[in-house]
Amino acid sequence: MLTPRDRNKTTTALAGVEPVVGSKSAAAQRVQYFLSESCWDPDRVNARRLELLLAQGATAPHAGGVLVIDDSGDRKDGTATAHVGRQWLGRYGKTDSGIVTVSTLWADERLYYPLHARPYTPARHFARGKSDAAFRTKWQIAVELAGRDVTAGMAFRAVLADCAFGDLDDFRGELRTAGLGWVVAVRPKHGTWAYGADA
């Protein structure tokens, strides 16, 4: 399942079969069954994976690395699937029906690996919409994931994010409050400032 694929987001790609027609093949059906019906706890599997990465000298995080925060969206039709909604899908450059996942990864100049991921759930899935206590924006999810990474023992010198997060004062403020350094992109119209010689 970890083998690189041209199409890495679908069961057919994981099974190595041709799209659409191949989805009915035995290999794809076995992978689909494994992913949907197995009783493994993904959080426990991920915690064990991170534990192994931290224990190895070649992959252990160090203070010279960075924590990268990003979101990634995929098209998904319909409304029955959890987390589906009309939202911005950056890879397609437009708003469309899909699922967006916020993720973190650790990187330095020689390697990188994913840490945590959580799907963003659009407000329409909550009884009280954006005012529902359970609703989280993408930047709030990102801050929570960064906190989990710190708790998991990930060392890094700064959080990196694109302008989808960097333009948000609340996001940068939460990182500052958590004592995390950050380097973020901002759109030119956002503007920046600094005191005197720091400019």
Rank of each mutant, 00 (worst) to 15 (best):
L2S: 03
T121Q: 14
Y33V: 05
Y195D: 12
H62W: 14
A178C: 11
L89R: 05
A58Q: 09
R86M: 13
V21D: 07
S38E: 02
R30Q: 09
S131C: 09
F34M: 08
N8F: 10
H190K: 15
T177S: 13
V159R: 11
F165T: 05
D71A: 07
D108W: 00
R148T: 08
D41F: 01
N46Q: 06
A161R: 09
D167S: 15
P122R: 00
R157I: 02
A134K: 03
D198G: 11
P19M: 04
P61C: 10
G93T: 08
I69M: 11
Q56D: 15
L89N: 08
P188R: 13
G65P: 01
R110H: 14
R91A: 15
V159C: 14
Q87R: 04
G147D: 07
Q29K: 00
T121F: 08
G147S: 07
D169I: 06
R75W: 01
Q56C: 12
A158N: 09
D149H: 00
M1S: 04
L53V: 03
G16F: 00
G179H: 13
P114G: 03
Y33R: 06
L2M: 03
G196I: 01
G191K: 10
L89S: 03
T101I: 14
Y120D: 06
R118L: 10
L168K: 15
A55G: 10
A134I: 02
Q32E: 13
T10G: 02
I141A: 01
R110P: 08
L89C: 11
F34I: 05
G57V: 02
Y112L: 09
T3E: 12
H125D: 00
A82Q: 13
E37F: 11
A178G: 12
A15Q: 00
K9P: 00
W139L: 11
R118W: 08
A107T: 09
F135A: 01
R187M: 14
I99S: 03
V31A: 03
E18V: 08
S72A: 13
V45R: 02
P188D: 14
Y120A: 00
A123K: 00
Y112T: 02
K138I: 06
A60W: 04
A117V: 03
P19I: 05
A27S: 09
G129A: 03
A197D: 13
R48Y: 11
R118P: 01
Y112D: 02
R30M: 07
S131P: 01
F165V: 08
R5Q: 05
D74Q: 03
G73K: 03
V45F: 10
R148V: 10
T101W: 10
D108Q: 04
V66Y: 12
T192L: 09
R44A: 12
G153V: 12
R187G: 13
F126I: 00
A158C: 12
T104N: 05
K76L: 15
L67D: 04
L2V: 00
D43F: 02
D167A: 14
M1D: 06
Y195L: 13
V31L: 05
